[in-house]
Design a protein around this nucleic acid. Sequence first.
RNA 1: GCUGGGGUGGCGGAAUUGGUAGACGCCCAGGACUUAAAAUCCUGUGCCCUUAGGGGCGUACGGGUUCGAUUCCCGUCCCCAGUACCA
Length: 900
Amino acid sequence: MDGKYFAKKVERKWQQKWAKSGAFQAEIDGDKPKFYQLEMLPYPSGNLHMGHVRNYSAGDALAWFKRLQGFNVLHPIGWDSFGQPAEDAAVKRGINPRKWTEDNIEIMRGQLQRLGLSYDWRRQIYAHTPEYYKFDQWFFLKMYEMGLAYKRMTQVNWCWHDQATLSNEQASGGLCWRCGNPVTKKDLEQWFLKTTAYTDQLLDDMEQIKEGWPQNVLKRQSDWIGRSRGAYVDFEVRSSGDSLFYCPIIDGITSSSDHGKGRIRVFTTRIDTIYGANSIVLAAEHPVIQANLDNFSEEVANKIAVIRTENAKPADHEKYVEKDGIDTGLKAVNPFSDEELPVWVGNYVMMDYGTGAVMSVPAHDQRDFEFATKFGLPIKQVISEPHLAHQHHAMQVLVLEQAFNEPGVLVHSDYWNGKPNAQAKAEMTEYGIKQRFAESATTYRLRDWGISRQRYWGSPIPIVYCSACGVVPEKFENLPVMLPDEAPITGTGESPLAKVPEFYETHCPKCKGPARRETDTMDTFVDSSWYFFRYLDPNNPALPTDPETAAYWMPVDQYIGGDDHAVMHLIYARFWTKVMRDIGLITFDEPFKRLMTQGMVIGETYFDDESGKRTYFTHDAVSVTRDVKGKITTVVSADGKPLKFAIERRSKSKGNGVDPDEMVEIYGADATRLFTLFAAPIENELVWNEAGIEGAVRFLQRVWRLVYKWKDHIRDAHLKPPDQEKTGSSARDLRRKTHQTIKRVSENLSSLQFNTPVAALMELSNAIGDLKIEPADAGTDEVFAVREALTALSLMLTPFAPHTAEELFAEIIGNEDGILANDARFPEFQDELAKEDLIEIAVQVNGKLRSKVRAVPDTSDEKLRELAKADEKVREYIDGKEIVKMIVVPGRLVNIVIKN
RNA sequence: GCUGGGGUGGCGGAAUUGGUAGACGCCCAGGACUUAAAAUCCUGUGCCCUUAGGGGCGUACGGGUUCGAUUCCCGUCCCCAGUACCA
């Protein structure tokens, strides 16, 4: 290569060299510590976007860093290649989903390769291949055996017009995304995986990973799982008057009777407030309500019908729903007070949480308060601030303006009066259990995972329905249940596989009689729940992964991905790992030791006002004005036209993405990667600004020129470090900067910071550039210092700009085998060399900076005091004043406190 | 509403977790080189006052603790994210 930096040339050269030597292929090596670096695998949508580039650049930086530190690094990549967009393409453009998917993979693999990411390409996995989905099915059968996979009726979003089930996203706002008609609910038989069997483990095992995971992800997961401890309390129910009512068995615990008596079970976390209950409120879907519809008055029945209809509409998150309900006429008895309470139906009680029945305590629950206020129901306070308790008992009316949720003592609660409510909670639960009308209970928000999809492009669920034997799991030896090459995909109605007789017509694995296959496929989140195990052993025909191999590589040391997967994918993957442990494949609980979530890459998109055409302009092409807060107020195009503008998220679904290929073409892969890491902390959102990337290019060019300037003079690897370096010599100064930089870069990378080490490298290169010596005139000390600095710089640059780093390193040492083949290591700093010879000590007077003095490190406090007091500028402030005290912070500052 | 995270120059962002605020980069301005441009290099760049030396003010806002606060405490305002009648 010559003295001018041609990114493309360098990048192509090293990509070829790496591929040829298999530089990043990893195998088990007991002599080295292992490091498993993982990034979330891409969905093959067709094009890489900048979010991918950011994610993979960060992962690659860590992979290189660890490699250079002597770790045996596994860094794989694969394809999450099942999913709906492939079917959409089939519907819209008549392309076969497999062809569409595989073409996309080809394109995106090329893009990844041009970025020069250091993957072990041999380990690629493809979710849509039988070799992979065979083990989706294998796991399903295992879970079926373990009782973790089951089938039941459930409600799904349903569009009558399109005859299609819709995901929650597709039904947002209560309207079908395709035809705009209102969405209803429909009952459908679906397969579920019992994630709820692991609720406590999913919560409690967070303890094991809390050091390495972002706080907010852990929090979101625990909110999502939503453990809530309380009690079930059974209320005896009667019909008023003569009419009978029916009380069916609920969850096997409520007694049934057609003689006007039964029990309704409520769930409460506040049993201590039970004396304040004014009613029992049931969900409209509650079995007791549904069983008695004929017994209610027309008015009640109508209201229930209205509430049910309203509930069936998907919720609009923004809208506050007015409380509504009606008294059913049924009565329930408070087991503590024997008070008879009305039974209402309320629109704010959800059937799918708790028992679908609540005891309404308006004084201590805001929702109950609103309900009671609206319908004029009594509000009785039973928890009081301790100092007001006597007033409550003196029957003074203390009017509440809202529910009282603070801790306090019980009032108007018979025997329990005066007890602190936390204590009462425990004792009252205990009492209820003894009296057999209560039970300790823990409820969860987390539901079982519905995995059935009425889609073609997914793993077939390996189940057979036989008229003689019923539901029969496919045999392990018959796996995989192959997805047929073609199916009529319409995007509507039931599964396309239900229209392929060659697929569904089969024989019962048990009795060999004619039978029908399950025609639903699995949710694609199944594929991504265990793919990181498959990388370890991608060709194993018998098992998803080999237990010994997994024991070596797992758990993943560092996982990186978008925080949009904080809940779904990361809970499923944790669940799957626990199931694998219970199957006996592995022995640990958690798959990902450390997790880092990177922020979105967003772009600023400006609309051409006249044509209305959505066009992306860079900052160079438009002029942008911002208000004080930094928000864009106006955007004017280069020819002076005001434009409509909007800031949009860069994503695959919108046509405004910055094209990584274009960036690589113009600036090179190294500059693109370096800049995505330098521009902002990895966890922040990044607004893509093209002007900034020029800085990254300039930096790489500067380093390049420095190496070419010096390389012929610093080739001698046997130079000895100067033993006694003169303080203040340029060689000493440069060595200090080099070692300080090594320290900073290593520390920053270890704590997953990418922007600050790049800044440190820029400083080091500036320091080398600032040397006033020409190479020909340099003494041996200087030559040594420059050689050390440039070698360290090129090695430390490897994680951010590997191609350039390889080339420069090769130039410095005079051999082209590459950094890894030369067994080069990330430089290590020497404390002694990083130390300053003279440090600047700030001198403050009454906390205000007045001067600075220089001193050698470890100067005694006494000496520093004297230096500070002797300083001319300081004396202007302290002469003639009484010094009250002096504070010395070693190595930092002296503060002189004077009396004014 | 609740929960979590934030608010630092024109912009992205640094700051050893109480110790010299603004590293590094972008933008911008001036200069050198050049016939010219590009590239490169140099200088300046928080705000205000000052001819200069220098001074004052500054980390959303108002208080507090401290010799000293971007950092800790109290209150207010604003932004972002998650979530939603969770009993």
